[in-house]
């Protein structure tokens, strides 16, 4: 089966913001761009293209499809056969003062596929019509689950020769992570000149096995202390990161995903969410 990048569009300017990143990922990875529009009105092919403001001549390999019914259900169903979902946080019916629309929220909560979220105010690093991330930030808390963000992000980043910055954030008054295979900043730091290089090396080996024999990828590990959301946004701003990939637990309910909510709110670069698959 041909792999594809799923791009749900509802005809709004906000949703169309995801067009260039979706097209670029498809181009970088040689995947088919699958544009999905969900509406109950009958539209001819031309009307559909016009409504979604697409210029087919700019696209190398794409499929455009219209479905009826619930947008969430249609997107989730189509996502099963997709490698990535790229979508706007907001659509035509969504209040931009909200974090994201209900459709997007349901998609990110229910899909196990990586979802690249594009906010209406997202700054995209576009060169010759292509979105090319140059400096990516991947926060890892030291648990293997959080490292699930790496593989789908690295697949794209390896093609753009981006600098990949792994950020390990630790907090005070925190119990050690109990997940098997966890690896957080060292409790013992006998001699910093040896401890940190050794720790960084193991951190990359443990969580980035995809790095094996990929000498072209530039990767570094940094640490910071404090509130994870604040640290992620501050790091991204300081280092001009133009892409963030985060693994998360998959629920946006009240008092959950506080870090993610704040990062979504405060960062203005594309953010890829990967729901942690506990069966891996």
């Amino acid at each position: 089966m041909t792999e594809k990048v799923l791009l749900p569009l509802d005809g709004s300017e906000a949703s169309l913001k995801a067009f260039i990143p979706a097209k670029s990922i498809a181009g970088l990875l040689g995947l088919t761009l699958y544009i999905l529009h969900v509406c109950d009105e009958e539209l001819s092919r031309r009307e559909l293209v016009e409504k979604l403001c697409i210029k087919p001549e700019e696209l190398e390999c794409f499929v455009i499809s219209r479905r009826t019914g619930s947008p969430e259900a249609a997107i989730l169903e189509e996502s099963r056969n997709s490698s990535y979902i790229v979508m706007g946080t907001h659509g035509s019916t969504c209040d931009e003062s909200l974090r994201m629309g209900s459709t997007t929220e349901e998609v990110i909560e229910k899909s196990l596929k990586p979802v690249l979220l594009i906010k209406p105010d997202t700054c995209l690093n576009v060169v010759n019509g292509q979105w090319i991330p140059h400096r990516a930030l991947i926060p890892l808390n030291g648990a293997p689950g959080s490292a699930q963000a790496l593989a789908p992000a690295m697949r794209i980043l390896a093609k753009t020769a981006a600098q990949i910055e792994l950020l390990h954030i630790f907090r005070e008054k925190t119990e050690p992570i109990v997940e098997e295979g966890s690896f957080s900043a060292p409790y013992y730091e006998d001699y910093p000149q040896h401890e940190w290089p050794s720790w960084s090396k193991e951190f990359i080996k443990r969580f980035c096995p995809v790095m094996e024999n990929r000498n072209n990828i530039k990767m570094s590990v940094s640490t910071s202390r404090g509130d994870p959301a604040e640290q992620i946004t501050a790091f991204a701003e300081k280092n001009s990161n133009d892409f963030i990939a985060i693994a998360w637990h998959g629920t946006m309910s009240q008092f959950r995903a506080m870090t993610l909510k704040k990062v979504l709110s405060d960062s203005n670069c594309p953010i890829m969410l990967i729901r942690i698959n506990y069966e891996m």
């Binding site: 630790f170 008054k173 409790y187 202390r225």
Partner: peptide
């Protein structure tokens, strides 16, 4: 006041 703690105090 810093317990439980997973990193050295000089880092904190």
């Amino acid at each position: 006041d810093y317990e439980p703690r997973t990193v050295p105090m000089d880092i904190i």
